[in-house]
Design a protein around this nucleic acid. Structure first.
Lengths: 306, 306
DNA sequence: ATTTATATACTCAAATTGAGCATATAGGTG
DNA sequence: CACCTATATGCTCAATTTGAGTATATAAAT
C-alpha cells in the first residue's frame, strides 16, 4: 500500500560553470570532459543557491560571480540503481578566470567541443553543410505527407543558414537528438550509429550544457552578465570578443561600442593598454551600480498614452 | 553517522494556473484564495511535466494548453513537521476558460486581488501614491549613507511611476517583502504590523504567484502564448484586452493591431462579430503553424557582415 | 617608409516605433 | 430620422533605433 511519508528521492545538483579563457568560452567538467560537476544537495545549506555556491567554490577555489537556476529534471529514466528517484536541479554559474597558464586548465573545455555547429565566429561551420544538413534532409524524407512537412518546418526554422539564430541552440540540440544524430546515454533509445561531430557526455549532461549556454546566449542581450566573466578592467575589444565567444558569432565593432556606451554600462578607468600592437585602447570598468538603477528588460508592447 | 542513501525528501508540485474570465486575469486557488493548488509528485509519471499536466487536468477538467516550469525551491524553512525536507517545483499553466457563469468561478481569483499596485489598466493605481510609496520612503530613511543610497536606487528603479515596467513585478514584490510591507507566512520574520493593500497567501504562495505572472508578462512579448488563453476565434479587440489584462496596462490600439498583423500570427476566419455595439469586428484565429516556422526570439546584438 | 593591426569618431539610409488623424459601421436616443 | 456614442479599421508622419559603412588615429612589425 502507498505510504503517506515521503517517497525516497535523492536531490542532485548539476552545475554549468562558465569561464572565458583566452577568448574561448569554457565549461568546467570532470572525467575528461564527459561529466558536468555534480553533487548531492547537503541538508545543511539554508537554500539551494547557497548549496551550489558553497559547493562550487570549494571545488574551484574561485568566487562565483553569478548563479542562476536552470531547470529541474525528474524524468523516469533518472533512477538510481537502488530504485529511488533522482531529482536533478541544474544551475548556471559564471566565474572569472585569468588567462590560462598552459594550453587550457585541466577540466575546462570549450563549449564548441560539444557543439561545433554552434561556433559561427569564423563564418558558417563546415560541419553544418557537410554532415548535419544532409542527414537532417534524410530524416525529413524518412516520412511522408504532413509529418514530412512538420519536420521540414522545424529544420528550416532552427537551422536556417541564411538567418542563423544563436539563441535556438537548445532546440537545435533537441532536434538533432530526435533525429538520432547525437547520442545520449541513459535514455532508452537505440544507440546512434554514426553521430554527427561533437563530443558526447554521460547521462543527459550535454543537454544540460546546451540549456545553460542557450540561457546565457539569451541573457547577455538584456542583462549585463558578461561582466561577471571579465576581469575588472577591460577594453571594448576584449568585451566584444567575450560576447562573440558566448554568442558564437561576429559582431559589428562600431555598433557594438555604440550600444555598450549609450547603455551607460561602463566607464573609463583613465588608463590605456600598452604593447598590444595597434593603437592602444582605453580601459573600462563595469558600472556595478547600474544593476540597481536600471533593472531593465526588453519591452516591445505598443503602450498607450502616458 | 551520515547514511549514503537518499535523504528523506518530499517533492511537491505547485501550479500557477491562469485563465481569462471576462477580460480579467485569474488564477486558480484553494482555501478561499489563500493557497495555490499543490500536490505530491506521484512516482508513476514519466516526467515532471506529465505529472503536472495529469494532475491539473484531473482537478480542473480542462485541457492545459501550455505548461512551463517556473522555479524550484528547497529553502530551509520548507520543512515538514516530520523533519524531512520539501522540494517544491512550481509550474505555470495556461488554460482556456469560457465566460463566467456568475460573477466568477469558485476558486478563480483575479491577479490584482493579490497585487493591486500592478494593475495600471485604468492609470496609476491610487494605492501606490497613497500607501506604498510613502512607506517605501520611510524604509529608505530608516538607514543612512550608502545603505540609504542603495535603497533609494532600488525603489526608484522598480517603482518609477513615470516609467513603469510591468516586468519587474517579482522584484517589486520582493522589495516590498524586504521592506516589511507584505507579510509572508512560514518565513522566520517578525510579523508585518500594517501590511499594504493586497491579499496575502499562505506559505510563499504569493511569491510563487508573482513569479508566474512576471514570467508570463515577459513571455507575451516574444512568444505567442496569449493565444493559449483565448477561445479559438477572437477579435483583435479581445486579443488586445487579453494582453492588457496580463500586462496590467493599456496598449495603443492601432499599433497593437499593426504589430499582431505584421507578425503574421493570426488569420481572418472570414466571419464577423454581431450585436456588440459599435462596428462589427472581423474574427481571427491563431496560426498555430507559425510556432514551428519561426522559433523566434528577440535579438539585439549588433551583428557583423553576413 | 610601408604594411598591418587595432581603436575610435562620425555619417547615412532603412527599418521600427510612438502617436495621432480620419473614416466606417454598428446600437441607442430624443 | 438625425445625432450621439462606441468600437473597428486604414493610413500618415516624425522621432528613434539599427545596420552598414567611411574616415582617421596610433601602435608594432618588416
Amino acid at each position: 500500500m502507498p505510504s503517506t511519508g515521503p517517497r525516497p528521492v535523492a536531490v542532485e545538483l548539476n552545475a554549468v560553470l562558465v569561464a572565458l579563457i583566452d577568448d574561448e568560452p569554457q565549461v568546467l567538467t570532470l572525467e575528461d570532459g564527459a561529466l558536468l560537476p555534480s553533487g548531492p544537495f547537503e541538508g545543511d545549506h539554508p537554500t539551494l543557491q547557497a548549496g551550489v555556491r558553497a559547493w562550487v567554490e570549494r571545488q574551484t577555489h574561485h568566487p562565483l560571480g553569478y548563479v542562476e537556476q536552470l531547470y529541474t529534471f525528474a524524468d523516469r529514466y533518472r533512477e538510481s540503481t537502488m530504485g529511488y528517484r533522482i531529482v536533478s536541479i541544474s544551475y548556471l554559474g559564471l566565474t572569472r578566470e585569468r588567462a590560462a597558464a598552459g594550453q587550457h586548465e585541466p577540466g575546462w573545455q570549450s563549449f564548441y567541443r560539444y557543439f561545433p555547429w554552434e561556433d559561427w565566429r569564423e563564418g558558417p561551420p563546415k560541419v553544418l553543410a557537410r554532415a548535419i544538413l544532409p542527414r537532417l534532409k534524410s530524416w525529413i524524407d524518412a516520412v511522408t505527407d504532413d509529418a514530412r512537412r512538420q519536420r521540414r518546418q522545424r529544420v528550416e526554422g532552427n537551422f536556417d543558414l541564411s538567418d542563423w539564430n544563436e539563441e535556438l541552440m537548445l532546440q537545435r540540440y533537441e532536434l538533432l537528438y530526435e533525429a538520432g544524430l547525437v547520442p545520449e546515454a541513459g535514455r532508452r533509445r537505440k544507440p546512434v550509429a554514426d553521430p554527427v561531430p561533437g563530443e558526447p557526455m554521460h547521462y543527459d549532461h550535454r543537454r544540460i550544457l546546451a540549456t545553460g549556454i542557450a540561457r546565457l546566449r539569451a541573457k547577455i542581450k538584456y542583462r549585463p552578465v558578461v561582466f561577471e566573466l571579465m576581469s575588472p578592467d577591460f577594453t571594448l575589444g576584449q568585451l566584444q570578443r567575450a560576447v562573440e565567444a558566448l554568442a558564437g558569432r561576429p559582431l559589428h565593432k562600431q555598433n557594438f561600442r555604440r550600444q555598450v556606451e549609450q547603455q551607460g554600462l561602463v566607464e573609463e578607468t583613465g588608463a590605456m593598454t600598452a604593447g598590444t600592437g595597434g593603437r592602444p585602447a582605453k580601459l573600462f570598468r563595469f558600472r556595478r551600480e547600474i544593476v540597481l538603477e536600471r533593472a531593465v528588460a526588453g519591452s516591445k508592447l505598443p503602450l498607450a498614452r502616458s
